[in-house]
Amino acid sequence: MSKENMQGTQDSESKLRGYLFGTACADALGRPVEHLTFEKIKEKYGEQGILELPPESPWTDDTQLMLVLARGLLEGAELELTELMDKIAKDLVIWLDEPDLGAGATTKGAALSLKDGIHWNESGLNSKTCGSLMRVGILGFIFSNDAEKLIEAASLSGRITHNHPTADAASIAGAYAVKLALDGIPPRDMFLPILKVTEGISDEFTEAIKHSYGLAHSNLSDKDALQKIGQGWYADETFALAYFCILRYPDDYKKAVQTGVNITGDSDSVASVAGGILGARLGIEAVPISWIEALNGKEILEEMVVPLLEKYFEVSENKAMS
């Protein structure tokens, strides 16, 4: 391997690790404060809220379902998208036997429909919750060199469980933001590309991301601005809150994630989306070592690194040859 190719491989591995551990650590930090008001978080953890991961911190369904999607990609990312969706649908059925880490009713209901023999193109529910958004970032890595397939895969895989237009737009944005992060695009310059790839899908999503961008560039405090965006239970708000955090702290993974978890709302989902995007942009070096060491299940992520990296290079080579 040439020195240039070796450097490229090392860089890709750092960014993949950054995405995986960036997502999972942020998810785990948000886990104990999900459903708590910001006032309750402060009562429990101090004026600044929760800031550090205690030992043996577990992740939630956000990371669990991202790994389900990752396994589907390992089985067939190089295939036509209909065949890939068959793999992902099968893995969602298998997921029903995994420990319940807090998955929402929409994802569970869709997976049960798949188990009952409903085809994946009819299994999705008309829900705009964030269950499809929180898992799609890994698509942004695997298909980062094939934007067309990335966008279609994000949409199709999201609609297996969530077929509401707002959830669809957020899924595309979540995966595409990771691709932009890998390309070295700073969060402020992601705004127009994300608007372009989600154009015409959901006015609700478009307004949410515009609102987020404007608030991030205002003089409002993080707390006041985040309250104006929402609580993150719906996909447009989840992405808008995460986007706000990375806009405010584009080069500071830790601060962006701490901002994302200390809200009244879906702390773990907001933080995991923000953490995955910034982890992909900044690499594993940006994720605190103490957080990685405190993460329960980190060996599962480690086991995924080499296979996912190999799949990424396989997919990228196939695209280059086509």
Rank of each mutant, 00 (worst) to 15 (best):
E207Y: 10
E207D: 14
E207S: 13
A208Q: 08
A208P: 11
A208M: 13
I209L: 11
I209A: 02
I209V: 13
K210R: 13
K210S: 09
K210W: 05
K210A: 04
K210C: 14
S212I: 01
S212N: 08
S212E: 10
Y213H: 06
Y213W: 13
Y213P: 01
L215Q: 08
A216G: 04
A216N: 06
A216T: 00
A216F: 05
A216Q: 04
H217C: 00
H217D: 12
H217Y: 07
S218Y: 10
S218E: 09
S218F: 11
N219T: 11
N219G: 15
N219F: 13
N219Q: 14
L220K: 09
L220Y: 14
L220P: 12
S221V: 05
S221W: 09
S221I: 06
D222N: 10
D222C: 05
D222Q: 07
K223T: 13
K223A: 09
K223M: 08
K223I: 13
K223F: 12
D224Y: 07
D224A: 08
A225T: 05
A225M: 11
A225Q: 01
A225W: 00
A225D: 01
A225G: 13
A225Y: 01
L226E: 08
L226Y: 07
L226W: 09
L226M: 12
L226F: 03
Q227G: 13
Q227I: 11
K228W: 06
K228M: 15
K228F: 11
K228D: 07
I229Q: 12
I229E: 03
I229N: 12
I229V: 15
I229T: 14
G230A: 10
G230V: 12
Q231R: 15
Q231T: 15
Q231K: 15
G232K: 14
G232C: 12
G232T: 04
W233E: 08
Y234W: 12
Y234H: 14
Y234C: 11
A235W: 00
A235T: 05
D236K: 15
D236R: 14
T238V: 04
T238W: 03
T238R: 03
T238P: 00
T238Y: 02
T238E: 05
F239Q: 00
F239S: 02
F239T: 02
F239I: 09
F239G: 02
F239R: 06
F239M: 02
A240K: 08
L241G: 01
L241N: 04
L241I: 08
L241D: 07
L241P: 01
A242R: 02
A242Y: 00
Y243W: 03
Y243Q: 03
Y243P: 00
Y243H: 03
F244I: 10
F244T: 07
F244C: 02
F244N: 03
C245Y: 05
C245N: 04
C245L: 09
I246S: 03
L247S: 01
L247G: 00
L247V: 00
L247N: 00
L247I: 03
L247E: 01
R248H: 04
R248L: 08
R248C: 07
R248G: 07
R248T: 00
